[in-house]
Computed example of a mutant assay.
Amino acid sequence: MNGQIVSLIIIFILLVVVFSSFVTVKQGTIVVITVFGKYRRILTPGLNFKLPLIEAVYSKISIQNRSVELEFQAVTFDQANVYFKAMLLFSVLDQQEETIKNVAFKFVDERNLMQALIRTVEGSIRAFVATKRQSEVLILRRDIVEHVKEQLDHTLESWGYHLQDLQLNDITFDEVIMKSMSQVVASNNLKAAAENEGQALLITKTKAAEAEGNAIKISAEAERQASQLRGQGVALFREEVAKGMTAAAKEMDAAHMDTSVILFTMWTESIKHFAENSKGNVIFLDGSTDAMQKTMKEVMAINTLQAAEKGKK
Rank of each mutant, 00 (worst) to 15 (best):
E175Y: 09
A209W: 09
R142D: 14
V92H: 00
A86R: 02
E157D: 06
V92S: 00
F128W: 13
F77E: 09
S187I: 10
V75I: 15
L93R: 01
A209C: 08
T99H: 02
S182I: 09
Q134W: 13
H162W: 09
A80Y: 08
I171M: 03
T206H: 12
E69H: 13
L202P: 01
D165A: 08
Q79N: 13
Y83H: 06
F84K: 01
T172M: 06
R126P: 01
G198H: 07
R111A: 15
S67M: 14
N112E: 15
D165Y: 07
Q115P: 04
E175Q: 13
F90Y: 13
E146M: 10
T204N: 12
V137G: 00
R66E: 15
F90T: 00
L166P: 00
N189V: 11
N189A: 12
A127Y: 06
N189G: 04
E110M: 10
E210W: 05
A192G: 04
G160I: 02
F72Y: 12
Q73D: 15
F72T: 03
L140R: 03
S67F: 11
L152Y: 01
Q164E: 14
D94M: 06
L168W: 02
K106W: 04
N81Q: 11
Q95V: 06
V103P: 01
V185A: 11
E157F: 12
L163Y: 01
I144A: 00
L117F: 02
V176P: 05
S158C: 14
T155Q: 10
K101E: 05
I203E: 14
M87H: 07
D174A: 13
M114P: 00
T99L: 05
E136V: 04
T99G: 02
E110W: 05
S187Y: 07
L140F: 02
L156N: 05
I171S: 01
Q151D: 08
I139P: 01
E97C: 02
A86M: 06
L152R: 03
Y83A: 04
H154Y: 11
Q183G: 11
